[in-house]
Design a protein around this nucleic acid. Structure first.
Lengths: 236, 236
DNA sequence: CAGGTAGTTTGCGTTAGCGCAAAACGAGGC
DNA sequence: GCCTCGTTTTGCGCTAACGCAAACTACCTG
């Protein structure tokens, strides 16, 4: 197995409350791998043979309908785990994971999970914590889809991306991985056309600056206002 | 503490892989309580002092926006846990739980959780499993909301309710707890008006029979067809 | 049994956002 | 430097679903 530097990952929530020795033992079971931009890490429906921890880069998890429509479940940022099918007792991946940037991951064989959990119960507790948080976020997303208009949802989505993976600029925040209108549409439950129109509108108001797979929030605060304003208070 | 019969709950996924002694010890920490129909069990935003296991009845978990709009997160059926805020490290309940029928629950103080998990690691693993499954379901719901029309979403919702809490009748399946048009609207991201129109339509086709807070699926199979048909195949 | 309350139905006008289509744009490959 | 392909923009017509309003109905209460 490839040796991984413990100091890089020791602070992650996944390993909270663990001794250096335990951490070392867990890492010994992992190997690391590099996935180039736009390569698939695993496909929805495939045998869940591994689970992953992202070290560098960005990964998009997306779910596809039988008819071929997609939604983006989430963007994985460094330090987060993904592909935890086994934790929920699933034999197959429920989504497809794709590197949107050159990415480096740690990989554990799924078969190692039961043993690791038995030996290090904190692992299950920590994973429960993160999965629980994701469930929360998922409910929030459903709430937004049910109650907000598309423009507000797009505003929220961009703010979240900026918070998660924003690079601070002199004036504004840039989302630091390639993301298309289509991607944002799939995060907010709309079409790329509508997203394009919304961003065009914002651009002409100076709220954002954007181009091919690239978005900079120039006036984050004003976007917060857009995100929070209730439907009918527009002309108030 | 009230004594609870272990045989009633021993088979639940939450207690999978546990010895009778362990189960007994866990149950000793719980008390049971009865909530009458339409009473609140806990409110969104309140201190998460307890977590719950439903023994009898039905509980609706709903999330409210600052503006007062609600969505139904899920209906809890007997044998399921709810109010697991502590598992995700939240100090407050992220939703409101209400008994929709006279209900009986087991209640543990949140403060007992860390101790229980330490003593019985399987508890965390089992909870991870159920929370993971709920996350899956939540993603499926987002996918449906993004890609399907209202009628299909309502069909799916009813089929799920029927599967979860359906009472088999001579001819059809009855959802065996009180549920309003409004509730279904809040499960599917639409309005009670639209749900009412859809059910009226189905009723006139003989697919369902419904009344005040009561729905019977008379032709489950035909509803499955409705749920699965893709958007444009209507006139095919 | 009368009255009130909560849930349901239905009609009608409106519209946010979709779907299609076509053009413009920009980045990478040869 | 040119060509090609994927992304983005924009126009236009359409419709699913909403929002409002009013009537209706079943159940519960006093």
């Amino acid at each position: 197995m490839a040796k991984v530097d413990t100091s890089l990952v020791a602070h992650l929530p996944l390993f909270a409350g663990m001794t250096p020795e335990a951490l070392d033992e867990i890492l010994r079971e992992a190997r690391s791998a590099r996935y180039p931009k736009n390569s698939a890490i695993f496909e929805q429906g495939a045998d869940a043979q591994s689970f992953f921890l992202l070290l560098h880069g960005h990964v998009r998890a997306a779910k596809t309908t039988p008819a071929g429509e997609q939604i983006v479940v989430r963007y994985v940022t460094p330090g987060e785990t993904f592909g935890l099918a086994m934790a929920i007792g699933a034999a197959r991946y429920p989504a497809t994971a794709m590197a949107v940037d050159d990415s480096v991951v740690l990989i554990w064989p799924t078969s190692a999970w039961p043993r690791l959990v038995e030996r290090f119960p904190a692992l299950a507790a920590n994973t429960l914590q993160t999965v629980g948080t994701r469930l929360q976020e998922s409910h929030t997303r459903i709430l937004e889809m049910s109650t907000q208009q598309v423009e507000q949802r797009v505003a929220h989505a961009l703010l979240r991306l900026a918070k998660q993976s924003g690079k601070k600029l002199d004036h504004g925040i840039e989302i630091d991985f390639p993301i298309s209108r289509q991607d944002i549409a799939q995060m907010t439950g709309t079409t790329l056309h509508t997203v394009s129109r919304i961003l065009s509108g914002w651009e002409s108001q100076g709220l954002v600056e954007s181009g091919r797979q690239r978005i900079i929030l120039r006036e984050p605060h004003k976007i917060v206002v857009l995100a929070e304003r209730s439907v009918d208070s527009g002309t108030a």
